[in-house]
Every structure is written in structure tokens, then in C-alpha cells.
């Protein structure tokens, strides 16, 4: 195992659907309107007055076995040693296989550039020692970003003491966003 494995632990209960993360990502990564690299899933259930509302922040899961990388014909989609899944814009031919392969619908096609785009875990910020824009800006600090390979790190601490699940574990992708229960 590498000494670095970036991942997110998300406490959705704390999410208030305020959209700060969505705008922060748009600003940081110059994401055009009409698409988003991160978003908040909403669930509203029940009949007045017995109701439930739940919110779930979502983005690329930077899987251990990323199906998007496997299907990419040019190698434009690739994974760094620290687990971050990226797209090399120059090598992307816009075939969009990866969009179909992604179980989380985390990728979108940019008409203006003719390439596919998605969350990078703000690799450019992380490499400077900062946290991803969505993580930093959040009023309720829903997302915890860190190094899963660090046994004493905050991610391992959270996962050791709290119940969690991952989305669509059956795909075999081994997604690296852990949702606390």
C-alpha cells in the first residue's frame, strides 16, 4: 500500500443543503454553469405532517478500482499513486465511455472543450498542502478529507468509531467516499 491514499469521510446528517460546496467548486475549478463536479442529493419522503428530508453531498468517489480508468481508450483517465483519479485533458478524445462506466454519474462532457471533466479532489490545492475547496468552505464541515493510509489519521479514527457505508459497493469499484451513519 502507498503511504498516501486520499479519501473523504462525509457526515451527511450535518449537511443543510446550503450549496456552499457547489459554488466553491465552481469558482475554484472554473466549472461552467449547466454542470457541476459536486452536488447535493436530496430525498424528501412522507406525508404531512410525518416527513423526512435527507441530503447527501456527492462527487467522484476516487475509487480504488475505477471503472472509468479501465474503459478509457487513450489513458486520459488515470489514477495517481495517492488514489486521486484525474483526466489528462490533452489525451481526452471526448468518447465519453468513462461517463457510462462511472457508477456515480460523477463525470460530465464539456461541449466547449470537447473533453470530459470531474472532481479532482482539488489535487492542485492538495498538492500545495491545502484541503479541497468543498471541504474548506463548508459551514458545517460535513466533509473530512485526509489520508486513509495514515493509521493515526482523522479518517481512520472516524471510521474506527462510527458506522459508515459506501455507495454502490456491489460494483467492485471500491469507492473512497465513506458516508457516516
Amino acid at each position: 500500500m502507498h503511504d498516501k491514499r486520499y479519501a473523504l469521510v462525509i457526515d451527511s446528517r450535518k449537511c443543510i443543503n446550503c450549496k456552499a460546496c457547489v459554488v466553491a467548486c465552481r469558482a475554484e475549478n472554473q466549472v461552467p454553469l449547466g454542470a457541476s463536479r459536486d452536488w447535493i442529493g436530496e430525498e424528501h419522503r412522507g406525508t404531512w405532517p410525518r416527513l423526512l428530508a435527507a441530503f447527501q453531498p456527492e462527487q467522484c468517489h476516487h475509487c480504488v478500482n475505477p471503472s472509468c480508468v479501465r474503459v478509457c481508450p487513450t489513458g486520459a483517465s488515470y489514477q495517481r499513486d495517492d488514489g486521486v483519479v484525474l483526466i489528462k485533458e490533452e489525451d481526452c478524445i471526448g468518447c465519453r465511455y468513462c461517463m457510462i462506466a462511472c457508477p456515480y454519474n460523477a463525470r460530465f462532457f464539456r461541449e466547449d472543450k470537447g473533453v470530459v471533466e470531474k472532481c479532482t479532489f482539488c489535487a492542485h490545492r492538495v498538492d500545495r498542502g491545502e484541503s479541497p475547496a468543498c471541504v474548506e468552505t463548508c459551514p458545517s464541515k460535513v466533509r473530512v478529507f485526509g489520508n486513509l493510509a495514515d493509521p493515526a489519521g482523522k479518517l481512520q479514527q472516524l471510521l474506527a468509531t462510527r458506522q459508515f457505508h459506501v455507495m454502490k459497493p456491489q460494483t467492485g469499484n471500491d469507492p473512497q467516499i465513506y458516508y457516516l451513519l
Binding site: 446550503c18 450549496k19 456552499a20 457547489v22 459554488v23 466553491a24 465552481r26 468552505t137
Partner: peptide, 9 residues
Amino acid sequence: GMLCARGNA
């Protein structure tokens, strides 16, 4: 330590 959607925009 936070900045909301409006602050970001």
C-alpha cells in the same frame, strides 16, 4: 472558518 455559497459567488 466557513464561506457560504453567496460568499463564494
